[in-house]
């Protein structure tokens, strides 16, 4: 690899384009193959497999060993409710290479200074979601405690491909939420997509600890799903 290859890698990562680094095990020759171009490659099948499983694979072809190292765009975390837990959660998710987006129509909360490293959208979830792609690498978490804010976001998320949906609130709050959604005509399968009470049960006591419990649950969902290659191809086409 030389500087040109490194620059191209960083550009593709910035553009959020899926690609593989294809190298011979015993030489410095490395090429970049994007998902779009992979059909032309002799190693297409392995390239698609590596991206889909998000896992490096070794392939023997023509008596040579090839390394196929996949790079998928980072997962996205959409936080509805720019509250105190959101501040801790944004820092943790950012550190895990998630792209973090925070939505809140309340100006006092949706203050960029409260989230210096993240995109903050001061709008109702319904409007904000119109400009966001909820794909299979997206997690949505609602933290406002306000049914009229949280529910819109949850309804949109249920109808999407996102890999994780979580809603903050006690068992009692969640029970009320389930009743509201049943009344709106959602079925059990839809409603079961919402993780509530949110997070792994670690007896979290403060915003930072709650954020860790939520993030742990999100990671658990992420690592138990496969990347959807067709969807990545679609996203590419829409650029």
């Amino acid at each position: 690899m030389d500087k040109k290859v490194l620059e191209n890698i960083l550009n593709l990562k910035k553009e959020k384009i899926s690609f593989c680094l294809v190298s011979k095990a015993n030489s410095t020759n490395t090429s970049i193959v994007t998902l779009k171009e992979s059909s032309k490659s002799e190693l297409n099948e392995s390239i698609v497999q590596a991206l889909k499983e998000d896992k490096l694979i070794l392939v023997e072809k023509n008596n040579e060993e090839w390394i196929i190292n996949p790079h998928n765009p980072p997962p996205k975390l959409i936080i509805v409710g720019a509250v105190h837990v959101a501040q801790s959660l944004a820092i943790i998710a950012q550190n895990l290479n998630f792209e973090v987006i925070i939505i809140d129509p309340r100006e006092a909360f949706a203050e960029q200074e409260r989230f210096p490293d993240n995109r903050v959208i001061c709008a109702w979830p319904d409007d904000a979601f119109n400009d966001l792609e909820l794909d299979s690498r997206t997690a949505v978490i609602t933290l406002t405690h306000e049914p009229n804010l949280d529910d819109i976001a949850l309804e949109r998320s249920i109808a999407s491909e996102c890999f994780y949906i979580g809603a903050l609130g006690s068992k009692k709050t969640h029970k009320k939420r389930i009743d509201r959604f049943l009344e709106k005509g959602f079925n059990d399968k839809d409603i079961s997509k919402i993780n509530g009470p949110v997070g792994l049960p670690i007896n979290a006591q403060n915003p930072g600890e709650i954020a860790i419990s939520i993030m742990a649950e999100i990671i658990s969902s992420l690592r138990n799903q496969k990347y959807q290659i067709e969807e990545l191809r679609e996203n590419w086409k829409n650029r």
Binding site: M1, D2, K3, K4, V5, L6, S23, A25, T28, T30, I67
Partner: peptide, 10 residues
């Protein structure tokens, strides 16, 4: 592990 020395050109 594969270690590759990078080239300072390009």
């Amino acid at each position: 592990i594969r270690i590759e020395s990078l080239e300072n050109n390009g």
